[in-house]
């Protein structure tokens, strides 16, 4: 039902290039945390270190600690595959498996993690699609390709796929940036519902979105070209958007740079 994440002293590298430096923060369970900041400051990189997706890029590595309810994700005996099973992810561009039907897409993660009876699977697919507010639109064409849906529907399908395996945490990297305003609103509503079950982290370039949906907000920035990104401040969203403690944060959210 959502777990706490504690990050301390985290650095991430691409080969020799240090993309983020010394990040520490605590992310509370059953809340929505937004990451904002100018392009290239390492929001995606940081997000991907949280479910060990960073290290699948050749040459990429991570230093530091990420604790999920006190357990270090980067401990030597922890398998990345198991971490990703607990911490799901939704990407910027909707990426349903093109060779699979809508049903198969939602069931994909479940099928990996052991055997399920047909009725069991049907039930989980239905609840996942209902939780992602997609059920009514697709219930008559579950066997059609997932790639045939609209962009917003595809993204909700990807959310359904991610929550079908019942992760503890859901990471979302700019999930609405490829979508129209209506689909964006649909996904924002969905996040508000899902936060009762999951810990949600969302990267967004849309200030209103961050202000609308998140409980807490972290502002990332670069100290200069080629420097690693870092967290400037993290606080309750209402505080960040009304009365931030750092000047850089204020400049950014009022649109003075970035």
């Amino acid at each position: 039902m959502g777990q706490q994440i504690q990050v301390s002293g985290l650095d991430a590298y691409y080969g020799k290039h240090k993309a983020i430096a010394d990040i520490s923060m605590t992310i509370e369970p059953q809340s929505i945390t937004a990451f904002i900041g100018p392009s290239g400051c390492g929001k995606s990189t940081f997000l991907r270190t949280l479910n060990r997706m960073h290290e699948v890029i050749p040459g990429a590595r991570v230093e530091g600690k990420v604790l999920l309810d006190g357990e270090d994700l980067y401990a030597p005996d922890v398998e990345p595959v198991a971490v990703r099973r607990m911490i799901g992810m939704v990407f910027q561009r909707p990426n349903p498996f093109p060779t699979m039907s809508i049903y198969e897409n939602v069931a994909a993660g479940l099928r990996l993690n052991g055997k399920h009876s047909k009725s069991n699977l049907d039930g989980i697919v239905e609840t996942s699609l209902k939780s992602s507010n997609l059920w009514n639109e697709v219930k008559d064409r579950l066997n059609k390709p997932g790639a045939g849906l609209s962009g917003g529907q595809q993204q909700r399908l990807c959310i359904a796929r991610a929550i079908a395996v019942k992760p503890e945490v859901l990471l979302m990297d700019e999930p609405c940036s490829a979508l129209d305003p209506i689909s964006t609103l649909a996904i924002e509503d969905l996040m508000a519902e899902l936060k009762n079950q999951f810990t949600i982290i969302i990267v967004t370039h849309n200030m209103q979105q961050a202000a609308r949906v998140s409980d807490r907000t972290a502002f990332f920035n670069l100290s200069g070209q080629g420097q690693p990104g870092h967290v400037v401040e993290m606080d309750d969203t209402s505080r960040i958007f009304t009365n931030p403690s750092q000047k850089a944060t204020e400049d950014y959210i009022t649109g003075r740079f970035g």
Partner: peptide
Amino acid sequence: MTTIQRISPNRR
């Protein structure tokens, strides 16, 4: 707290 389970021997 739930600990991070190892993947099943079958999958491995």
